[in-house]
Design a binder for these strands. Sequence first.
DNA 1: ACATTTGAAACTGTCGACAGTCGTCAATCG
DNA 2: CGATTGACGACTGTCGACAGTTTCAAATGT
Lengths: 227, 227
Amino acid sequence: MTPSSAFGSGAIIQQRNLVEQVADYLTQAIISQRYAPGERLSEVQLARDLGVSRAPVREAARLLESRGLLVSQPRRGFFVRALDASELIDVFDLRLCLERHAMARLVESYDAQKEQALRRQVELMCEVALQDSDSRKIEEDLVFHRMLIDFSGNRRLLKAFDDITHELRLCIALIGKTHAEPDTIATCHWELLDALASGDPRRCHEAIDYHIGVARDYVVKGIGESA
Amino acid sequence: MTPSSAFGSGAIIQQRNLVEQVADYLTQAIISQRYAPGERLSEVQLARDLGVSRAPVREAARLLESRGLLVSQPRRGFFVRALDASELIDVFDLRLCLERHAMARLVESYDAQKEQALRRQVELMCEVALQDSDSRKIEEDLVFHRMLIDFSGNRRLLKAFDDITHELRLCIALIGKTHAEPDTIATCHWELLDALASGDPRRCHEAIDYHIGVARDYVVKGIGESA
DNA sequence: ACATTTGAAACTGTCGACAGTCGTCAATCG
DNA sequence: CGATTGACGACTGTCGACAGTTTCAAATGT
């Protein structure tokens, strides 16, 4: 990569913060495994490569640290987060906790508008599952689950979910493939919608438990194989 | 406050990061209402008052932003987080979500050692409730609930709880008093331990629901009165 | 009297530089 | 030959400075 052109032509106005741009660049680089887990990041080298000073790099690194993509050791710098199987299970357990709660809240305020929006998203996922890239499938899947949380009406819950989303992307990327077959994805998500439509809290509870459990087992198995 | 002496004697070696020290100072200042909710924080003035440069101040502010104590607007700076009743309910709803899950996990792995540690903490809280300051009572209460989460075994869950802990301190501080009478605190927490000892998941579920519900209602009522 | 403009002050975003610290590796000693 | 020590290099933590932007209020026009 050419120095001072990582963000494209230097002539183009950079409207957004350098911090955000660096954060996006780093996020993409980590998710796409261009930096290995546990690898140390040099602030000066990063700043040189990206054509910026160290200040934005440091702030972006702090941001990614709070998102769980980097870890910092005092006086030693930033390292790419390395997730072991145990931490991974914890992340999925937390995800289950959040989505279960969201489902319980959502089923109380479920209406036609929300149902339609969710149906559209699942239909989109079905289309995407047949042709697009794995990363696209993952993104659309995350969009669906984010909608689920969003519709529950608790903004703080949504923030907590967004926090672990980055970690989810990381561990999904670690195993290198999407988390299920196309038809499995479809049936799983339709089942969630059916459970919501039924209005039965217990059925919602069981549906999301099964759904997240499948995803977790798949990722854990993938980690076990790659490790 | 005297400039360049906010951290105490300058002769003593400062082993910890300036960032952490500034973060602690800011946290304390916000929790103790020395900065009003919504107030704008000037980086230069803060740096001047604390006798440091702007870099540590900026990084500390970023840290507190990720903890929900500050919010930033591009090109405008950092503002003290102002919580309205709606956000406050969301925070307590998320707390309920996390603690409910922790209780469910904890009851599966409950043993004598964990029980003893929790009992000791409740006993400490009972002592503290009779004589110490409100902030001390709040801290010991948070310690108890943090132990609950910690003993559940999920580290990621603990991090999520720590994240909202700062927001909890903020909104508890907003209403200016501790969240219940001494005897209420005691009975509530003993009930939680009894539920865990019984090994009955449903009873645990109901106990934590009641407990957090009481705390939430108390804080919401306090906000309503102060607003 | 009120709305608009304009100018200065203050502030944030960014940068380059310096000092202290940590890791590394070679030279020295037992 | 192994362990210790010392110096070298690289890096992080911190600082002061500059440029562009925002804000606020005084001045101007209607």
